[in-house]
Design a protein around this nucleic acid. Sequence first.
RNA 1: GGGGCCGUAGCUCAGUGGUAGAGCAUCUGCCUUUUAAGCAGAGGGUCGAUGGUUCGAAACCAUCCGGCCUCACCA
Length: 525
Amino acid sequence: MSSEQNELIKRRLEELNEIREMGINPYPHNYEVTAKASTVINSYKDPVDDDEALKRKDNIVSVAGRIMSIRKMGKASFCHIIDDTGKIQFYIKKDEVGEKQYSLFKLLDIGDIVGVKGYAFRTKTGEISIHAIEIKILTKSIKPLPVVKEEITESGEKVIHDAFADVELRYRQRYIDLIVNENVRSTFIKRTKIIQAIKRTLEEENFLEVETPTLQTIYGGANAKPFSTHHNALDIQLYLRISNELFLKRLIVGGFERVFEFVKDFRNEGIDRTHNPEFTQVEWYQAYGDYFNSMDLFEKIVERAAISANGTTKIVYQGVEIDLKRPWKRLKMVDVIKDKTGIDVQNTALSELIDYIKSNQINFDPAIASNKGLITATLFDECCESELIQPTFVIDHPIDTTPLCKPLREYSPAQLQEMENDPEQIIFVERFEPYINGWELGNSYTELNDPVLQRRLLEQQVERGRGGEEETHPLDEDFINAIEIGMPPTTGAGLGVDRLVMLLTDSHSIRDVILFPLMKPIIKP
RNA sequence: GGGGCCGUAGCUCAGUGGUAGAGCAUCUGCCUUUUAAGCAGAGGGUCGAUGGUUCGAAACCAUCCGGCCUCACCA
């Protein structure tokens, strides 16, 4: 329906004109706000002492906000407005504000933004409100807002009626969602608190916040399909980063011993309730540390983020109780597989593993059938991952899962060489993935800094890509050059911020924790 | 990309082949401490889009658009 035809909009445009005819600017340039909704309410918490203060009526405040409800009773009315601290009621009486002010008030609608000057009082029903002595229109809204009603039952429970619930409209017009759905506002405030807590923890540990390119000529650092784009002046193909790992390691080579970065990563893959094409990660790299240091820091960061958002390490995610309190369980991948399937992968022939996978109809990429390490990883992904509900670090992954991680320190050079030539042997690397609620929440390594092994592993991966395996990445010569210059012993970790926010806010979909999730455009015929 | 479900007033939803409905919001009147305010009345629709079946379609069929769930891919 076009805006000209809608009677609700027409009516509001008429009101707009009437306000202008009264000589009032419906879109003034500023307003002096002297108090916030929540501070007014919180200053009169004490029902005995504060009632004395309320009777004085000399504490004049000016609050500003959007009208959310109007209850007119002839020559007096009550309204609720919200500002960024919450909701407050004001009371306006014709006798007190005069004819012109009350006429202006009658031209206001739900959704308009007003400034209210007055004194605090307690209503008959006990609600701290503002008794208006002057009202000012700050912005006239010409489109109707969904009307959401709140009821406080006798038992004190809050019941929402007619909630603005259309998921599609909520995501497409998030501004409306934020206005009318208080829980949405609180989710995104928590998101900010979580990010602040992560930053604060890293800064306290002397990590330096840095920035690396989003547009890259070569992508790497993760196994994912990239978005590609084109630079006109240089006439070259560019990729949106899938990870910032390789750049942060270059900075460790450059002598910054502790760095971190919050980034948007972009992956050109499927969309579902735990995947958005652009998502936020924080990665940090620490020279002279190993993956045990990263585990300690990881669980510390998550614990503090939880306390910062909710005041507790205990969460309930979609009905499942989870405690994020340190320390978390640390289990070797092979032990988890043994526990869940009974298979001791190290003492089981590759052919038997394949038989197991086939007879249990487990999904796997046939291109990896000759790789015992990747078969082991598949067994873990398919049989174990979803059962790791309480926080668990799954440590020591097969070397074939990543070319960027150091083999276990217990291997001697001779042993490594022997294992490499035996397809029945699995070399494990110092990698961990933290699992919560069956989700992989991050990834961490004792970083590989042996330049010869680094080159070989990256080249092998390129080879595997040519062999038909998907989502391996091209060779980044400059990255290898940096490792050849020499990177100190280093540990690095990445944390999926969106998923952490989902857990800490009990959000069902990643789209509930991203302000503007990607939506398909609506094409009008 | 496959499969399932969904799309009706500004919002939340009824409506299974026979004149398009309710609550809230809007408008008119009454109401000077209300709070899902109340009382009386009124207006508001391309039923996601396009074709088809039918005497007759919001409903049945097909295609398309968008969303949700799920599987595949992945974090």
